[in-house]
Amino acid sequence: MRALNSPILVIVIAQLFGTSLWFSANSAAGSLMQTWGISEADIGLLTNAVQLGFIAGTLTFSLSGLADRFEASRIFTVSALLGALFNALFALSAEGLSSGLIWRFAVGFSLAGVYPLGMKMVVSWAPDRAGQTLAQLLAMLTLGTALPHGIRLAGADWSWQSSILVSSVLAVIAAGMIWSLGDGPHLKRQSGKSRIRLGHVLTAFTIPQFRASALAYFGHMWEVYALWTLVPALVVVSGLAQPNTPAQSGIAFLVVGIGALSCMLGGKLSQRFGSARVAAFALTGSVISCALFPLMPIDHPGWILALLLFWGATVVADSPQFSALSAKAAPPDIVGSALALQNAIGFTIGMVSIQLGTALVGTVDMYIAWLLLPGPVLALWALAPLWQQSFKPATPT
């Protein structure tokens, strides 16, 4: 595999550390349910508080144009530091669901300056390899999502607060890394004296290629974060592990974390086959996984685990390719805002599936997978105009 150059390496590691904030509370779900006396659906509320904060943040950045008005590296740095602070306050001061929701919302708002701006930064360093570099970035987002489960497994005897605080420390390190790196040479930024044009980013949706990629991304978002939220519960309802055990944390880490490898592989394949075709292949894998999971015999745990790992790999391998397609199609002067708006809409859609999934999984068990199935099916349909063409990124010269 082609070696990462230094700036890209810095950004993807910072993304890994920064996005560990995202599911830090979910890794302690069992302890929170016991300590606070809350339900699986309430864990969904905590997850959705992060999603809602992220949506509010991305809308603020995109509709105001701030994502393209100031240096991406500075926005990332400040956002990572704030996210670390709010995550620490959740661990140290939240006394129940109500106060916990406030701090998780604040963490989500901060992540709006980490994830989309990280995408913009990698494109600014290697615009001719957008599909591959964004795949590396999304691999770290995926691993960052899995990381709290790994931390929880490694520190099985720690308090839930200690496990969550590790993510805050990692986010502070991420801020320092990006502050030192700065922006890439290919970043086009609006003049600091220019007028903020509210809503100008909406013009991106008049471009057919951007519209097709964005619509496919929205279908993908119905599935991906809901699955990541539900993985600990799916491990239990399928009989692979008991709740609140190291085995549950370990399997959840593997199922989510394997997506990092598939993102990297997809990024490499996108250089040969194009982002649209790689995304279509991953979506097909998601369709198969959603359809088959409820039909798996519960007395064959090996097959269930294999399907969960396959699902974890395919559910996210398409995500960086949607970002690459959208970044390629959007006008250069609003690419940061366009990606942020795409994220905001996608996460709004994902909030619905997360809340429905966490509310229903205790009743329908493994059949909850069929709730997620319409997402990848609709995404394949929306992406068809792109993957049916010989769409391939330009070969670097």
Rank of each mutant, 00 (worst) to 15 (best):
L215D: 00
L234M: 11
F281G: 11
L165R: 03
L254V: 12
S163C: 06
W222T: 12
S180A: 07
V224I: 12
N244D: 05
F218D: 04
V169C: 03
L170R: 04
A247Q: 12
S168T: 01
G199Q: 02
I207H: 00
V166P: 12
H220V: 12
S168Q: 02
R197I: 15
V172T: 08
L240A: 03
S180V: 07
I207E: 00
G192L: 11
V235Q: 02
L215G: 08
G266M: 06
I251S: 01
F218S: 07
S275Y: 01
L261R: 09
L261I: 12
G155T: 05
L283A: 07
V224W: 02
G250P: 14
P243Q: 00
P243C: 00
L261F: 08
Y225P: 12
A216I: 07
T229D: 12
Y217P: 06
L165I: 04
L240Y: 10
A252E: 10
L234Q: 06
T229R: 13
K268A: 14
V255F: 04
W228P: 13
L254I: 14
S238Q: 09
P232I: 09
W228C: 09
W222L: 13
W179K: 11
S163Y: 00
T229E: 10
F273T: 00
G219A: 14
L240E: 06
L269S: 02
I173L: 10
L234E: 03
L230F: 11
G267F: 00
Y217L: 14
Q209Y: 01
A171E: 01
M221S: 15
F210R: 03
V201T: 11
G219F: 10
L153F: 13
Y225K: 14
G239K: 05
V235S: 01
K268Y: 15
F210C: 04
W158T: 06
V256D: 14
A171F: 04
A174G: 05
V278L: 00
F218P: 07
A282I: 02
T284L: 08
P232G: 03
T245M: 10
L265R: 06
S191E: 10
V224F: 14
L198Q: 02
A279C: 03
S162V: 10
L170Q: 01
G239P: 00
V231H: 06
F281A: 15
L187W: 15
S213V: 08
W158N: 05
L265A: 13
L153S: 05
R197P: 11
Y225M: 08
L261Q: 06
L153A: 09
S163W: 02
P185L: 02
Q242F: 06
Y217G: 09
A175N: 04
T206C: 02
R211P: 05
K193T: 09
S162N: 07
V236M: 09
A214G: 06
A280Y: 02
I164P: 00
L269R: 01
A216Q: 10
